[in-house]
């Protein structure tokens, strides 16, 4: 069955001032709930502290990202997303909430390279401030990549992640690859 399950752009990869790669299948769960009231129940499932505003925190085999005051995005193994939804639903029973598997609705990219060119590459296509002070590892920024919605965070100074909707994965990959083309160095960040 596994070879029948495909991410948006399997194996897509571009090299330039930075390397852009589609990361394959990634489990993602959208959880909408009263985050103040349900923090403990959620932590019980994810093992992660409730992230603060725009923060992304690590849990047991998963990451929890703050999306809005009543929305989290939980990143886990693709195969675990269904169970994650079930576990969250069980943990939050009796509480108004919505947990839904959105793994296949998205595409995830790794953008990696030297710190400056990495931030420069992203700054060609997003109006969000890509400086290290404005977007440090541990924070997730929802914004746009030119004409489509996306979320960006840094795993480290030299590696960023980009999430977008699955249908525009090709567009976002092409944008990133174009921005990373050799010869386009800016030297700003």
């Amino acid at each position: 069955m596994s070879d029948l399950v495909k991410s948006a752009l399997p194996g897509a990869r571009a090299e330039g001032s930075v390397t852009v790669e589609e990361m394959g299948l990634q489990g993602m769960v959208t959880l909408r709930a009263d985050l103040l009231a349900s923090g403990a129940a959620i932590a019980g499932v994810t093992g992660a502290e409730m992230p603060g505003i725009r923060a992304i925190s690590a849990g047991q085999g998963c990451h929890v990202a703050w999306m809005s005051p009543d929305e989290l995005l939980i990143l886990c193994d693709h195969g675990r997303a269904g169970a994650m939804v079930a576990d969250l639903t069980a943990a939050l029973s009796g509480q108004h909430h919505l947990a839904v598997n959105v793994s296949d609705a998205r595409a995830l990219f790794r953008v990696a390279g030297p710190a400056g060119p990495l931030r420069d590459t992203l700054a060609k296509i997003t109006p969000a401030d890509m400086s290290a002070e404005a977007l440090a590892p541990g924070e997730i920024r929802r914004t746009r990549l030119q004409q489509v919605a996306a979320a960006i965070w840094f795993e480290s100074a030299t590696e960023a992640r980009v999430i977008c909707f699955r249908s525009v994965a090709r567009y976002v990959f092409d944008l990133l690859a174009m921005s990373a083309k050799p010869g386009g160095a800016v030297g700003y960040h």
Binding site: I53, R54, S68, P69, P127, A128, R141, R142, T143, R144
Partner: peptide, 11 residues
């Protein structure tokens, strides 16, 4: 006021 981001008009 919800996420604290200073967003530009295009966002």
């Amino acid at each position: 006021p919800y996420c604290g981001v200073t967003a530009c008009e295009t966002e």
